[in-house]
């Protein structure tokens, strides 16, 4: 269902939010057009957090039920999460460079996002090198739970650590006029639908891969007999 309808939704939604972000929304008072990167940067970051929340929920569900479906969901969502985190990081760095003049600032949100990237790349590595299908799924679920629980603690501690620095760069407040809010909401909505669509595609692909694997094993066993 999602696979049939969502692309037709995504096409107009994406074009509308691009139009809102680039043409309708006015340039920001101090940052001018540089601020426009925010719409899709925030949307990517939102998707990243959403993906990791899904990993967390699916991991708990897997540990409780042991259904392969949940393990697959956690895995695919983690992949997408790393993808969107990368986009958020790169666009964040471009933003930092153009607004603060630095490619990297040790700002809590940026730093937490970078750590998220590391945690879930580690998660994918754990999955890539894990032994035994079921055991690997359980270990990954363990990391999926603890990794997400750690996020607010990391954020708080980085924030606190940062508050000791006299040169803290005040988060340049963006004066959002109503049209900017509309553009931002549109971008976030589009990206959310995009995430659901990509997750569905990726899950289906993973499902097919597993079926092919089983088929292959059956064929090999038949050949050996």
């Amino acid at each position: 269902m999602v696979r049939r309808i969502f692309p037709w939704l995504l096409l107009p939604m994406g074009i509308t939010s691009l139009y809102l972000a680039f043409v309708v929304a006015p340039p920001e008072a101090t940052m001018a057009d540089r601020q426009r990167i925010m719409y899709f940067h925030v949307a990517s970051a939102w998707n990243a957090y959403l993906s990791f929340l899904v990993v967390f929920v699916a991991s708990i569900a897997y540990l409780r039920t042991g259904a392969r479906r949940w393990d697959r969901t956690a895995f695919c969502s983690a992949e997408l999460g790393v993808f969107f985190t990368s986009i958020a990081l790169v666009s964040g760095m471009v933003w930092g460079r153009s607004v603060w003049g630095k490619w990297w600032v040790w700002e809590p949100r940026l730093t937490t996002t970078l750590l998220l990237w590391f945690i879930y790349v580690g998660y994918l590595l754990l999955r890539a090198t894990g032994e035994g299908d079921e055991r690997r799924a359980r270990m990954a679920a363990g990391l999926g739970v603890i990794g997400f629980v750690d996020v607010p603690i990391v954020h708080m501690s980085v924030k606190w650590w940062n508050s000791y620095h006299p040169y803290v760069i005040g988060l340049t407040k963006v004066d959002m006029v109503p049209m900017m809010v509309v553009a931002l909401v549109a971008a976030v909505l589009t990206f959310t639908v995009f995430y659901v669509y990509m997750l569905d595609l990726r899950l289906h692909m993973e499902h097919l891969r597993e079926r092919t694997q089983i088929l292959k094993e059956n064929l090999l066993q038949g050949g050996m007999r």
Partner: peptide
């Protein structure tokens, strides 16, 4: 439970340890 446990542990641990 992985093939590369000794390389993997620091990679998994340090981000969580921040």
């Amino acid at each position: 439970n992985t093939r590369a446990s000794e390389v993997l542990l620091p990679i998994l641990l340090f981000p969580l340890l921040v």
